[in-house]
Amino acid sequence: MLTPSSPHAVGNQSVQQVMFSVWAATLPGFAALIWFFGWGYLINAVLAVATALVAEAIILRLRRRPVWFFLGDGSALLTAWLLALALPPLAPWWIPVIGTLAAIVFAKHLYGGLGNNPFNPAMVGYAVLLISFPVEMTTRWGIPAALATEAHSLLDSARVIFAGLRVDPALVDGMTMATPLDVYKNDIATLDAAELRAEPLFSAGWRVYGWEWVSGLYLLGGLYLLWRRIITWHIPVAVLGSLTLLALLFSWNPDLRVPVDLHLLGGATMLGAFFIATDPVSAATSNRGKLVFGAGIGILIYVIRTWGNYPDAVAFAVLLMNFAAPLIDHYTRPRVYGEGRS
């Protein structure tokens, strides 16, 4: 090859920058998580990121790829980070480690590495964990600090995370709970909405204590990504729109089902809509395709949360729609300039 082809000018985006921006956009939400739910998230994140980098480096070596070239792109880091944000903060240490390994080794590199994975790696990791370790994954969510009976330090979190079975069960109980969505779904069978709303979890804050802030800050981070044109509006709007619509349609009676505000604020919805469903590699690509893809995720989230057995549904919804992405792409090709104008 004599000379490279045009264009000779390149824009100022790079993969690394994209990954880094997404990472940065999660930081406010991450800070809120730690503020409300304790240090477990930080420990999770450190464990997951370290595992991801080591696993990625080893696999790149095995595959004889340039290690630093790919390690530097930040994709492994981001995968681990998003997984850490989605995991219960007080789960045993091997939960983030196994999840990250599943994400990096199985979901990413066995499919050919960056850009070739049909499924969102972080969500594959999450799903593997949820299926294999349902107890750890559902009960080890943090009690908001302000609602706990006593204050817990970083050390306490570390003890719960690393000590495994030898830890004092009282300490674990004092620090963990199920997710608000789970709580509402389970308790609404015995209580009515007004009673439930009076519980500190739902009354101490504005809607659902702590989570409302986390979700709000994720939303903010998502808007930043939109503004930076790293993601387009289609997927988040479709996810949130379809979820809201379904919740309004079927959950109009808060005495029966989880109401719409909890759907939007009480779980991983915002994280999913702005940071996980928008993972470009495994999503649909055309604008119309993204709308379909996002709407599918929103619908599945609602369906699984309402009629399924899992406390949250973002991971399964995203994975199921990943399956459908190639098909969606096939049927939503944009009209080409001049097509059908002869």
């Binding site: 090859m1 082809s5 095995l62 595959r63 004889r64 790829r65 340039p66 070239f69 790919f70 050919g112 590495g113």
Partner: peptide
């Protein structure tokens, strides 16, 4: 005519 660009990362170990 132009030839295809050759990205060096394309070969994976099993294909080398």
């Amino acid at each position: 005519h132009w030839q295809a660009p050759q990205p060096d990362y394309k070969l994976i170990a099993t294909d080398a």
